[in-house]
């Protein structure tokens, strides 16, 4: 499984946000996209998810044009409120499964829902509505839903920001569980360099000053945090 971005370009109101962005991510790998706020990270992620059309360039999935959004490329959002508030946590996961994996049948959906809830340590919270959950539990709930859908590509839009340090650690653990369970190609957008370095095999720095270009780094054996900090400061 390979996700490939090929010369993606996007312009808003005459201002170039993304310029010739190219990279590829294999299954099991994580690419972290870092950059300052408003540099186009979320725009890039939405293009990868198929939710936004690029002005130029293509997104490829296993050598095929990725096309419309679908369960193969699942996006996990930054907001705590990405679970539907009128459904319980269990209901949210079941609903997603009914829509994306209907062939599982009622029993299969039930079993998978319970398994994902248990793996995210949310077994006791399944019957609760989102308003009854803490921010960290909601994010883990969103990750449990992603785990149940089992996408080929996981697109994470700063899912750990706005969490306190302890909860973040908890959710990061849940993220590792999700990665292992799905073996998906992961694109993680973050503004936290430490988080990028400790979770990704590749790091991409998005430069708004250079007209939305991307610099790729292999994240092995070098002090990338200091290097990235210097580059971001420039």
């Amino acid at each position: 499984m390979e996700l490939r971005a090929d010369c993606l370009c996007k312009t808003y109101d005459g201002q170039t946000v993304l310029k010739d962005i190219s990279f590829s991510v294999q299954n099991g790998e994580t690419l972290a996209i870092v950059g300052r706020s408003g540099c186009g990270k979320t725009t890039l992620l939405r293009i990868l998810a198929g939710l936004l059309a690029p002005d130029r360039g293509m997104v490829w999935l296993d050598g095929q044009p990725a096309g419309l959004p679908g369960k193969e490329r699942l996006m996990v959002f930054q907001s705590f409120d990405q679970l539907f508030p009128w459904l319980t946590l269990r209901g949210n996961i079941r609903y997603a499964l009914q829509k994306t994996r209907p062939t599982l049948g009622a029993k299969g959906i039930h079993r998978l829902t319970e398994r994902c809830l248990a793996q995210m340590e949310l077994g006791d919270a399944g019957g609760k509505y989102p308003y009854q959950l803490s921010g960290g539990m909601k994010q883990r709930g969103a990750l449990a839903r992603a785990m149940a859908i089992s996408p080929k590509v996981l697109l994470l839009d700063e899912p750990f920001s706005s969490l306190d340090a302890l909860t973040r650690e908890n959710v990061l653990q849940a993220f590792q569980t999700l990665k292992q369970a799905t073996d998906a190609a992961v694109v993680l957008v973050t503004h936290d360099l430490e988080e990028a370095v400790s979770n990704a095999s590749q790091i991409a720095l998005l430069h708004p000053a250079a007209g939305g270009t991307l610099t790729l780094f292999d994240n092995r054996g070098v002090d990338r945090v200091s290097q990235l900090k210097r580059l971001l400061a420039d």
Binding site: R46, A49, G50, L51, L68, P69, G70, K71, R73, L74, M75, F77, S79, D81, Q82, F84, A96, K99, T100
Partner: peptide, 14 residues
């Protein structure tokens, strides 16, 4: 309604 609800619907191929 938060735009991500619609995004999720599209991701669910609805």
């Amino acid at each position: 309604a938060p735009p991500m609800y619609t995004d999720l619907g599209r991701i669910f191929s609805m």
